[in-house]
Design a protein around this nucleic acid. Structure first.
Length: 198
DNA sequence: CCGCTAACATAATCAACCG
DNA sequence: CGGTTGATTATGTTAGCGG
């Protein structure tokens, strides 16, 4: 467990003034940083790239909200195709797509069946186990959950069309939250026998 | 107690990889 | 090609911490 540079195991990250200064500066330059930029920032302020990504997401969200209150700067009519100097290289520059081996997928799927909402510690453990960054694990679970729900939604086709069904999203949400919070028990070890996926 | 905001959720969409 | 699926986004919610 050599957690060399990761002071935030559990606690919410607290950026220092200097870190915030750098982040805000970068945000003002480019609210949609490329992957390379995010990596560089992570290195520069000594934090993980995933924290950078979260920070930018939150910051953009807040800015959007503010804009509704102050819509005085609109320049949407011009479709900026190519900037002469700014060079928005962020387009298309994303993290390389991770490809999982079948054994890695097997482990992930098994963990998913045990608990589709693993907490930070479970994800980190999983990350070490299969040798993949924790942030990729989180993305994998997000995608998996989302697509699983979509499938269940598209299923009801044999019931003809009985309109008037709606309103059961909160159910899922609540369950998810709870499991995330307290589901630290069964995930820690899990039984490795019996669960024969296929 | 409250406001701010990191962390995390889903859904939609982009895009890489592969049969 | 088109389907599968990893990466990114907008948007909304929950929880921790400082005032």
């Amino acid at each position: 467990m050599a957690q060399a540079v990761s002071p935030n195991t559990n606690r919410r990250t607290k950026f220092t003034e200097d870190q915030l200064k750098i982040l805000i500066y970068a945000f003002n330059q480019k609210p949609y940083p490329s992957y390379a930029t995010k990596q560089r920032l992570a290195l520069e302020i000594n934090t993980e790239e995933s924290r950078i990504q979260i920070w930018f997401q939150n910051r953009r969200a807040r800015h959007r909200f503010q804009k509704r209150s102050e819509p005085e700067e609109h320049l949407e009519s011009s479709q900026d195709e190519d900037h002469p100097e700014e060079k928005i290289q962020s387009r298309g520059d994303r993290r390389c797509r991770t490809s999982y081996t079948s054994s890695q997928l097997h482990t992930l799927i098994e963990a998913f069946m045990n608990n589709p909402y693993p907490g930070i510690d479970s994800r980190q453990q999983l990350a070490i186990e299969i040798g993949v960054p924790e942030s990729r694990i989180q993305i994998w679970f997000q995608n998996r959950r989302s697509r699983f729900h979509v499938q269940r939604k598209r299923e009801p086709d044999e019931a003809l069309e009985q309109r008037q069904d709606q309103g059961k999203i909160s159910e899922v949400r609540v369950q998810g939250i709870e499991t995330t919070q307290n589901g630290t028990d069964l995930t820690s070890d899990s039984y490795s026998s019996g669960a024969r996926t296929r």
